[in-house]
């Protein structure tokens, strides 16, 4: 390597921005499409269990009668098949990655059935 090229490289190193992202002190803005974590919005869910059917690692369990949605984030492979399957928009993909855990947890949500406008008895809880 010639002396000219050597000094050019050295100067470039001195004046260019460092390549390092100073995570966790500064997080970079998330990329919109990033598949970070499945987000569940229990207000919209009708507990149809389509997501359970489509989930390749069987990380989602839905109890249609009891109106319970449960997801194991330590099984979820973040493929997004459930988000595509969800008709009501209650599942979405969060761009932020999941937190590390010290214990295994399964997250579940339970909602009371909304009052039916007509006829049918409310499903058993």
């Amino acid at each position: 390597m010639g002396l000219g090229k050597l000094s050019f490289t050295a100067l470039k190193g001195v004046f260019s921005k460092p390549a390092t992202r100073r995570y966790p002190f500064e997080a970079r803005p998330p990329i919109a499409k990033s598949r970070g974590r499945i987000h569940f919005d229990d207000g919209k869910c009708t507990y149809c269990s389509l997501c359970e059917l489509k989930c390749p690692p069987d990380a989602i369990k839905v109890d249609r009668q009891g109106r319970v949605f449960a997801i194991d984030h330590l099984l979820c492979i973040l493929c997004g098949a459930c988000v595509e399957a969800c008709q009501k928009g209650s599942l979405s993909m969060d761009a932020k990655h999941g937190e590390p855990w010290t214990e295994k947890q399964k997250l579940s949500w339970h909602t009371e059935a909304p009052p039916k406008p007509s006829g049918d008895a409310a499903p058993k809880a």
Partner: peptide
């Protein structure tokens, strides 16, 4: 196991979080 890092594949940021924990 002391720390579980979720993700498939786990992101470097998530791994750093896990190691810091």
């Amino acid at each position: 196991v002391d720390v579980y890092v979720p993700g498939c594949a786990a992101r470097p940021e998530a791994i750093i979080d896990g190691v810091v924990k």
